[in-house]
Simulated scan of single mutants.
Amino acid sequence: MTFVAAARSSPLLAERFEDDRPLDQAGWDEVQRAAGDLLPLAASELRYCSPTPRSRATGDALGYAPLVQLALRDCDMGRWRGLTLGEAMAREPDAVDTWLADPRSVPHGGESLLGFISRVGGWLDTRPVEEGGRIVAVAEPSVIRAALVYALKAPPSTYWNIDVRPLSSTAVTGRAGRWNLRLDRPSGQPSRT
Rank of each mutant, 00 (worst) to 15 (best):
T2H: 12
T2V: 14
T2E: 05
F3C: 07
F3V: 03
V4S: 04
V4D: 03
A5D: 04
A6W: 03
R8Q: 15
R8N: 08
S10T: 09
S10K: 06
S10N: 04
L12G: 08
L12R: 15
L13T: 14
A14M: 14
D19L: 10
D20Y: 06
R21I: 02
L23Q: 11
D24H: 11
Q25V: 15
A26W: 02
G27S: 07
G27R: 01
W28R: 15
D29S: 11
D29Y: 04
Q32L: 15
Q32N: 14
R33H: 14
A34G: 09
D37I: 02
D37P: 00
L39T: 10
A43C: 03
S44C: 13
E45S: 13
E45D: 12
L46A: 11
Y48G: 04
P51D: 05
P53Q: 12
A57M: 08
A57G: 06
G59S: 06
L62E: 01
A65C: 09
A65R: 13
P66R: 00
L67K: 14
A71Q: 11
A71F: 00
L72C: 05
R73D: 11
D74Y: 01
M77H: 13
G78N: 04
R79M: 12
R79F: 08
W80R: 05
W80P: 09
L83N: 00
L83A: 11
T84A: 11
L85M: 10
G86T: 08
G86W: 05
E87N: 07
R91E: 14
E92M: 07
E92Q: 12
L100F: 06
D102I: 05
D102Y: 05
P103G: 02
R104P: 00
S105K: 04
S105M: 08
H108F: 01
H108G: 11
E111C: 07
L113W: 04
L113R: 15
F116H: 06
I117H: 01
S118R: 12
G122C: 14
G122I: 14
W123F: 15
T126Q: 10
R127Q: 15
P128C: 03
R134I: 02
I135V: 15
I135W: 08
V136E: 09
V136Q: 09
A137G: 11
A137E: 10
V138I: 07
R145T: 07
Y150R: 11
A151M: 02
A151W: 00
K153S: 13
P155S: 05
S157L: 10
T158D: 03
W160A: 10
N161T: 07
I162M: 11
I162W: 10
D163A: 13
D163H: 13
R165W: 02
L167E: 05
A171I: 03
G174K: 00
R175T: 05
R175Q: 13
G177W: 00
W179D: 00
N180I: 01
N180C: 12
L181E: 02
L183Y: 05
L183K: 09
S187K: 08
G188I: 03
G188M: 01
R192N: 04
T193R: 04
T193V: 02
